[in-house]
Design a protein around this nucleic acid. Structure first.
Lengths: 236, 236
DNA sequence: CCTACAATTTAGGCACACCGAAAAAGTGCT
DNA sequence: AGCACTTTTTCGGTGTGCCTAAATTGTAGG
């Protein structure tokens, strides 16, 4: 059980895991295909192989679940990816919108030794540059208590603790708008039907209002600063 | 001309280049096969493809030469490899016998951006941890005036400036014998017919004699400290 | 219940990089 | 020149991961 998986295999497992990281319905074949950028038929075939290898559970026409072993591999990949992103930003001066693609290639090439040396050198960080939790070598995930901006009610105050790294263009946009990790936000107005969600960004005098595009509201996660009775209502 | 070569292709070009780095007869198919650990038939096929891509010159049953473009790619790979090795040793605490394999995998995964950021961070070194010259981004190779230990005559004095990184076990052996880059050596006795080559290691009081195994004599390169009339005679 | 549509799987193929075995071409010796 | 031997190439075949097109299965609406 040491023989090294193909990088395709690693990508499948990582993608299956990623899908359930921030919500809990399991991924379907076609969603997997879309995320991996391959045809549905490729997924069918690969999922069968992963099942034969004992890395996923799957019954025909059903969703795909990781087995314990599959989860272990996926978490290893996630750890690699996020440590690499941290390294790229901290040590090589990458900006947060540049790191994803680079880490995506590197994560298949690094050894366990490399990863652990890197982690040590970085001070065993628990979060990557986008605020994503970095699983420990043993597979424990730092607890994070954040909610999507899109799910918060007006009046809610908090700090941005995670911004999805999937869309580099959005990250550049947010950087340009001076919105980043640890930025404090207050939800001003919830979008009524199709109108925009508005948040107040920054504190006190320096505060400004910001019209949150839908896509951003899904990508930005906020951790409450003030315990505010019913803070997490998620109207559809 | 940007479309990214397969890692196999990169390996072939790098291996062809490496063969002529320290001597000048060009590589044959079977030598290439041995070094790459593949069958001769695989090489024939791949060389044909490389030729079609304009990366090598080759006529049936002849040796394989890099074209200008092939050389450019090979030097890029060599640069990557050696910068990665330097990084692994300097920043991640790898020992020199551990870096080769790791760099071998990483060199196919890093981007040009990564390499240049890394080079800058390392201070644009001209030598890697084994003393191998690091080509510049534009493909210039730092000049090195060294000779194989096996080619030196008795009385010759010099400093070790390069040790081939191909055999990790030898590197561990040399480290154990406290022989490394910048170690000063004097050739004491040339091996007569099958007898051992002996060198004096270190200077003055701390000097000791060292019986050089054949393999080591081929792997260690020395740069002269004293201009010593006829110093480079290479008896067979 | 049964049909229409969407999701998934199966079938047949392709490109890549490899293999062993067999054929062909070069080389060296008399 | 001719023969033996080595090197290289050609040939048919493998495994992986991908594709398109054609079945199949699942599901929601009437």
């Amino acid at each position: 059980m040491k023989s090294r998986l193909s990088s395709s295999t690693e990508d499948y497992l990582k993608t299956i895991y990623a899908f359930t990281e921030w919500q809990d319905t399991p991924i379907t074949s076609s969603q997997l295909a879309t995320r991996l950028g391959v045809a549905n038929s490729s997924v069918s075939e690969m999922v069968r192989k992963l099942k034969d290898m004992g890395l996923v559970d799957h019954r025909p026409y059903g969703a795909v679940h990781l087995t314990e072993e599959g989860l272990r591999v996926a978490l290893t990949m996630v750890r690699r990816h996020r440590l690499l992103e941290t390294f790229l930003v901290n040590d090589l001066g990458y900006s947060w919108d540049e790191v994803h693609v680079e880490a995506e290639r590197l994560e298949h090439a690094v050894s366990d030794l490399f990863v652990e040396r890197l982690a040590a050198r970085l001070g065993n960080p628990e979060r990557d540059p986008h605020g994503d939790p970095i699983p420990s070598a043993s597979g424990d995930i730092p607890r994070i208590d954040a909610h999507r901006l899109s799910e918060l009610d007006p009046g809610h105050e908090g700090t941005i603790t995670r911004i999805s790294d999937e869309n580099p263009e959005m990250l550049r946009y947010l950087a340009h708008e001076r919105i980043h990790l640890d930025t404090e936000v207050t939800v001003v107005r919830r979008k009524p039907f199709g109108g925009p969600l508005v948040v107040r960004v920054g504190q006190h005098g320096a505060a400004r209002d910001f019209d949150v595009p839908d896509e951003v509201a899904e990508a930005v996660w906020v951790e409450s600063t003030r315990e505010h009775a019913g803070c997490t209502v998620g109207g559809s």
